[in-house]
Design a protein around this nucleic acid. Structure first.
Lengths: 217, 217
DNA sequence: TATAAAATCAGGGTTTACACCAAGCATAAT
DNA sequence: ATTATGCTTGGTGTAAACCCTGATTTTATA
């Protein structure tokens, strides 16, 4: 019997998945966690075989939780169940060592298939996701990530602060006033941000930041 | 017996909600729709008593679907079930005439309570949402909406087209080339957009459009 | 067929964005 | 002690954004 922990910040979704798993005899949901932090605490006492993991969650998201959980228990199997269908998340979670990846838009059949495949010791990655990946391969089979999804250089704390204000719609002069800085200083930070994110103007910088969840809207 | 249609773009979530409703004897799920468009088609032939409606969906979102569904069947009761916890959505859906509003972070108990309250003919609005509203009232009890969330005038088709390109990060001259228009023309459309949305520059226009789901990212 | 609304373009103006260059200062790493 | 990095500010110049007014043509609609 598979002991399963469901990690998702939406209680109703957890409830539904739990019913689905137990109705279909896929396993036993021994616990639910509303974020990655709580999952890690549970792993101190519980021995799940499988964790069903969302990505976007408060306190601690799925990526960090996956890395720490697998560090704690390398034999643990993790199935990502998310509505985020983008390459960056797919690669990060896959590199972190998850055993499967299914979208919330998937049907019951695919979900069951994923669980059954994973508990057999194999891996399951949804075709919906794989298709997206293949569509972005070049002639050499290399995967082309969107410009917006390329790894960017790490931002300094001041740059993050300025970026946040840009994403709230403030202009350079407004940010300068707010932070008691010269306009030139803020312009410098913007230039650095444009360079690091490989964007050509503030609008694209803001769009980049939003798409990569670098700021809170 | 309550005949229910579940409208949500995540098949697994629909599946879970369906199980939950039928396990708890809350009603019978006679159909599922993955977006508002499909719900409207279903209303041609089906007679649900209650619709459980998500807001963010492809093709047609929950707001438009609610308005059109209630125009077709004023007696229909709609329970909003979403993960979007913001004032604008709350007010727009409430003004559109929904009977209840519950977040996906809510537990099974609250969900059941909401459905039972609504089928009795009353309304149910989650405290989690109401609290957010109250926190944004001024001394007179007036609710302070974000500037970005105020109702804007309807956009023309050309304006929508230009807005979409702005939200993809194109500049005025790039949009002009793409649409075979003069720069002055695109600037005119931008000015109209800024006026209608009550924003003061392109970045705020883009942020406004994103927050109000006026464009596809 | 009036009339309004939408779409197109222009002139001329101010403000802001952005690039490139240069440099002082503090702090942390080696 | 030296080096590197981050934070700060300045100058200069071009391009783009943004404002206002005004105009023509097309399209929709009463």
């Amino acid at each position: 019997m598979n002991n399963i922990i469901v990690v998702d910040d939406h209680a109703l979704f957890r409830e539904g998945i739990k019913l689905l798993i137990e109705n279909e005899g896929l396993g036993k949901v021994i616990a639910e966690a509303e974020n990655g932090q709580i999952l890690l605490e549970m792993l101190e006492t519980l021995q799940p075989d499988l964790v069903i993991m969302d990505i976007e969650m408060p306190v601690m998201g799925g990526l960090e939780a996956t890395r720490k959980a697998l560090q704690l228990r390398p034999e643990l199997r993790i199935l990502v169940l998310t509505m985020l269908n983008d390459k960056a998340n797919y690669f990060e979670m896959t590199n972190a060592g998850v055993s499967g990846f299914v979208l919330k838009t998937a049907g019951k059949q695919e979900f069951e298939k994923a669980i059954n495949t994973i508990v057999r010791g194999e891996c399951y990655f949804s075709n919906d996701v794989l298709r997206q990946i293949i569509l972005n391969m070049d002639n050499n089979g290399e995967v082309i990530l969107n410009k917006a999804n390329r790894h960017h250089e790490k931002l300094t704390s001041r740059e993050e602060e300025v970026l946040q204000y840009f994403c709230e719609g403030l202009t350079v002069s407004e940010i300068a006033s707010k932070l008691f800085l010269s306009i030139k200083t803020v312009e410098s930070h913007r230039s650095a941000l444009l360079k690091k994110t490989n964007t050509k103007n503030t609008i694209n910088l803001v769009l980049y930041a939003i798409k990569n969840n670098m700021v809170s809207l």
